[in-house]
């Protein structure tokens, strides 16, 4: 197989683009897709500091790498979830990456904020583990961005993540999440940082290939709690579709963003308040994070 650009031996085939690339041309393709995402959705400029949420996995470290290479001002944010060896290893990967690039890494601990690590939080709530974890991460990411003066948070969500979330939201016609699913969410409150996903145009396999080719040491093993998660079942279904029809995921997600998302916007009221307990932004009186912390405290009492 030959590189579409230079004719040298290819290292990766992108069936949905009907293309194959050698290592240098693939990395250029990758950076261009990130640049296009940032430009199209006005995600951020080189003038403002960007907080990159890193997990130690391929997506977030690839994102941080490409933003550093492109010349953006960045710092990493690692959320320590307290998930046994998985968290110890993933934190070490983030620290090693930050040190190798001479970048700042902010570390926040879920256990310090919510009262216990995710394994214990999971026992205190009826929510699925990934749901409680996701809610804690979104809360802590926003709080860290606001506290440390970062107007924007970038996450490593890729095309497969976004297509799987969309699939789940469509299966259950979740109006509010459908209205909010976007590569860029504006700040609609002074205590809310902008949230952007510069990798949404790139597949999971592409971010893995980029991380590998750049020599990024990332954590390959899955989170022990991800096994059996609904989002993974959705990804597997979409993988089968993609195999039979290359470009299916891309068309599903991009068709939604370009043609359908507008129909859901405005369908849901979005009045924002400050949580009566912690002061962070919420749509209710008490935010979901404080309710979760309360459940954890009561369990431990």
């Amino acid at each position: 197989m030959k590189c579409r650009k230079c004719g040298a031996g290819a290292v990766i085939e992108l069936r949905r683009h009907n293309a194959a690339f050698c290592a240098p041309d693939f990395q250029e393709f990758f950076r261009k897709q990130v640049a296009e995402a940032i430009r199209k959705h006005k995600m951020f400029t080189t003038e403002e500091p960007v907080l990159v949420a890193v997990s130690g996995g391929k997506d977030s470290l690839a994102l941080w790498d490409v933003l550093i290479e492109t010349g953006y001002q960045t710092a990493g944010l690692y959320l320590d979830l307290g998930i046994f060896d998985y968290s110890v290893e993933s934190k070490a990967k983030c620290e090693a990456f930050a040190a190798s690039r001479g970048e700042k890494l902010i570390v926040e601990s879920v256990a310090e904020s919510v009262g216990a690590g995710i394994p214990e939080v999971q026992k205190a709530t009826r929510r699925p583990t990934c749901s409680a974890c996701g809610l804690s991460k979104r809360y802590l990411m926003n709080r860290a961005a606001v506290d440390h003066g970062y107007p924007v948070i970038a996450t490593g969500h890729n095309l497969d993540d976004e297509a799987a979330v969309l699939f789940g939201n469509v299966l259950h016609w979740q109006m509010d999440p459908l209205a909010r699913q976007s590569p860029a969410l504006a700040s609609t409150h002074p205590k809310l940082a902008r949230r952007v996903k510069p990798l949404y145009r790139l597949s999971e396999r592409e971010t893995a290939a980029y991380a590998f080719l750049r020599g990024i040491d990332y954590i390959v093993d899955e989170c022990p709690f991800a096994k059996g998660a609904t989002s993974i079942a959705h990804k597997q279904i979409l993988d089968r579709l993609e195999e039979a029809s290359p470009g299916a995921k891309h068309n599903f997600l991009f068709g939604f963003l370009e043609k359908a998302r507008g129909a859901f916007e405005g369908a849901v009221p979005t009045a924002l308040n400050e949580c009566a307990i912690c002061g962070q932004v919420t749509t209710g009186e008490i935010c979901a994070f404080c309710k979760l912390s309360d459940q954890v405290k009561r369990r431990r009492a």
Binding site: K58, R138, D161, A208, F212, V220, A226, S231
Partner: peptide
């Protein structure tokens, strides 16, 4: 399409990650 054979050592590395439901 690459041909591999005896003597090669390969790693087949899954690319799927995640679990976190909403984004």
């Amino acid at each position: 399409d690459e041909v591999v054979g005896d003597g090669d050592e390969l790693e087949v590395r899954p690319v799927m990650s995640g679990g976190s439901a909403a984004s």
